[in-house]
């Protein structure tokens, strides 16, 4: 029994030492990489905060109206946000590199997934931001136009336009992220189809008399032409 226990213990210790030999070196290397990344991030933050004031970016955000959608900390100045983003990006890249050092299937999948997702996240964020801005811009255009034309309930019309544009932006962003794309896209098709059908009905019913008059005029013209040529 003691012999069996000793064999089990020896096997366990052997496995443990094998795991330690396999994973401790990459772990130490990973920690060193992460520490270096954090140090580098601090140095870059110091240099960047001195070099980048962001006056041009602040002016653009203010004049374009994008500032209205951004949180208060960004609205008051872009420079701290950019510096902060750069600061956190470097340790994140360091962490990915550290994870990649282990060179296992799982860690490779994690790194690959993160690297592939990151640009899509940026693109989807940009699409949403532009979508919100466009919704506000078009909403205001409709509001001013409807008010000057004395169309009833201009604010509701403007709100409907805003909702429609934001919805389209959400559909496109979801498609970019491969997130519930079928659901969003189907909803978009139903919405767009409904809008086109409504406009078609409104135009058709409203222009019925005009079409009737146009057809009547054309048939009179053809009759007159026939009579003109009768003598030939």
């Amino acid at each position: 029994m003691i012999q069996t226990l000793r064999e089990v213990l020896e096997k366990a210790l052997e496995r443990l030492s094998s795991q330690i030999v396999t994973y401790i070196p990459p772990l130490l290397v990973g920690m060193a990489i992460l520490a270096a990344a954090v140090l580098l991030a601090r140095i870059v933050r110091l240099l960047f905060s001195k070099a980048f004031k962001g006056a041009g970016a602040d002016k653009f955000l203010r004049e374009s109206g994008f500032a209205a959608f951004l949180p208060g900390s960004v609205r008051s100045g872009v420079a701290p946000v950019v510096v902060g983003a750069v600061y956190w990006l470097i340790p994140l890249l360091g962490a990915l590199t550290a994870v990649n050092v282990f060179d296992t299937r799982l860690t490779s999948q994690i790194v690959e997934g993160t690297i592939l997702l990151f640009p899509k996240l940026i693109a989807a964020g940009a699409i949403l931001l532009v979508g919100f801005w466009l919704a506000q811009f078009l909403g205001r255009s409709i509001l001013v136009w409807a008010c000057n034309e004395e169309i009833p309930r201009p604010r509701r019309l403007a709100a409907a336009v805003r909702v429609a544009v934001v919805f389209v932006a959400v559909v496109v962003a979801a498609d970019m992220l491969d997130f519930a794309e079928r659901g969003f896209f189907s909803a978009f098709i139903i919405f767009a189809g409904g809008a086109v059908l409504t406009c078609g009905l409104a135009l058709g019913l409203g222009a019925r008399d005009s079409v009737h008059r146009w057809l009547g005029r054309n048939s009179v013209t053809r009759e007159e032409e026939k009579q003109l040529l009768n003598h030939v």
Partner: peptide, 16 residues
């Protein structure tokens, strides 16, 4: 002057 992208809205909203 300071809001170039809103100029159209601002001018048309002057009417009332």
């Amino acid at each position: 002057r300071f809001k170039p992208l809103e100029r159209g809205h601002l001018l048309r909203s002057l009417t009332p």
